[in-house]
Design a protein around this nucleic acid. Structure first.
Lengths: 258, 258
DNA sequence: TATCGCTCGATACACTGTATCGCTATAAGA
DNA sequence: TCTTATAGCGATACAGTGTATCGAGCGATA
């Protein structure tokens, strides 16, 4: 039958791409794609294509796409240097906060993947271990509470920054421009007079350095924690640990410079 | 030809479903689907099917799927009762925090849609207007900073709760069970001894009421704000907004990696 | 009654994640 | 060296997704 076509077979199927391949190669390729074109660019077909492989090949190294995403998250955690254990809780938590924020700025997709699933990868665990270890309150519940609050704030703040950043990019304007010019829609809304405070915010607020705003919010949280759990207060002068406060038997909160 | 099939045409195309349809109907149908089966259940085909309509019909009322998602978010904002303007910033912000948390508990998909895009719907704007209005610091930047920090915390905390809740549901275990039994994986990890603090958290921490934990974290933030901006302090006794208390003008000591 | 316009939705397209399974290139056995 | 078993690869297929296109049918107007 198709014998006559035998001669122009497109290629000897031998070896157009016998690249060895490995989990790390796959994860790194996926990260590169995500960094360049966003999470949408990470499809099994595209990742495979970037490695000169067919889509199904990946399933030899990866169970499902979600697993790939988990691995990407853990890889980012790997690049975040954990706090050294001796630095004291406040410095430690601040370090962690900045580490995550910086990582999220490098990999804008990071924050999108953080939420869906709890991170159980080895580097994630190491990072959270180091984080917890810097907070040496005597009551473990206090530790959890403090770290949890800081992480919640960091997560929300970073998410907000990234969201805003994307919005600016998609409209091609800075946020200030956007708020003042944003289509006729926003102006019409504000012109109704139903949102006076909002209008004041838009027109009167100075657009401050995002990093500074982030730190200010972070300080709120840290101050709040200090006021309740820490005996070696730093930012809030004169306030005493409210009545029921903990006993000062903390092991060694010593600031331990660096 | 197919003339003989004419007799069992599925329907006279006249009017199997001339339901009037409207944006609200569509949005409500989508919300119902999302409440029952999660965001995955919200596809244009399924929403349309729930309204006895073809998928393309929706495009008469909606520009794109993202617009539908925006409308869903705004609809949820509508059910959140805004704070009354007179209540004072602390009560007001706490009210807002609980309002969002409760809404996110009613509609688990809500938090997933909050992030991606800034909310510009009328109810979203009304809600944020009311929120800002309760915080009457003299400096508008202080207002923004305070509200922003609280919202960031709320967002992160709620996201964490929902994530945890889903994880529990998918494994069919409570978090405590999950942490202690979670597959052999977690146990093996903890058994390595590389995560002593984490292990302590898992085994020694009491699993507290989530609402209480949420409030505790919220109080950290509110206390921190009060310490800096409010003259009518409530929770932290004795501390004055003394000039020197303000943010560390020196850009954080940054223990930076190395 | 004839025509216009509009609204509807069937069809199609490009894309997704993944199950199935035949092919092929290699390793083992005789 | 020749044959056979094994394993990995990836073409194909399937059920979805959001949306562009466009022909068909209806109601209202001339």
């Amino acid at each position: 039958m198709p014998n006559e076509l035998v001669w122009d077979r497109p290629e000897p199927p031998s070896k157009p791409s016998p690249t060895p391949l490995s989990r790390d190669l796959i994860v790194n390729a996926a990260i590169r794609l995500a960094d360049e074109g966003g999470l949408d660019e990470v499809s099994l077909r595209k990742v495979a294509a970037a490695l000169n492989a067919g889509p199904m090949r990946l399933y030899g190294y990866i169970e499902t796409k979600d697993e790939l995403l988990d691995l990407m998250v853990d890889e980012v955690y790997r690049e975040i240097t954990p706090p050294r254990p001796s630095v004291g809780w406040r410095t430690g938590l601040r370090h962690v906060a900045h580490g995550i924020r910086d990582a999220a700025k490098r990999h804008e997709w990071f924050i999108d993947l953080l939420s869906p699933r709890p991170h159980q990868g080895p580097h994630s665990l190491a990072h959270i271990e180091a984080t917890l270890a810097t907070v040496q309150f005597e009551d473990i519940d206090q530790v959890l509470s403090a770290v949890g609050a800081v992480m919640a704030y960091v997560y929300g703040a970073v998410r907000g920054e990234i969201t805003e950043l994307r919005a600016e990019r998609s409209t091609g304007m800075t946020e200030e421009q956007w708020q003042r010019a944003s289509g006729p829609y926003m102006e019409r809304m504000l012109a109704t007079g139903r949102f006076p405070t909002l209008a004041r915010v838009m027109y009167e607020s100075s657009d401050r350095d995002p990093a500074q705003v982030f730190d200010e919010g972070l300080d709120y949280v840290l101050d709040g924690i200090a006021a309740r759990h820490d005996t070696t207060r730093k930012h809030i002068p004169g306030s005493k640990p409210g009545g029921s406060a903990s006993a000062p038997s903390a092991p060694s909160p010593a600031p331990a410079g660096r």
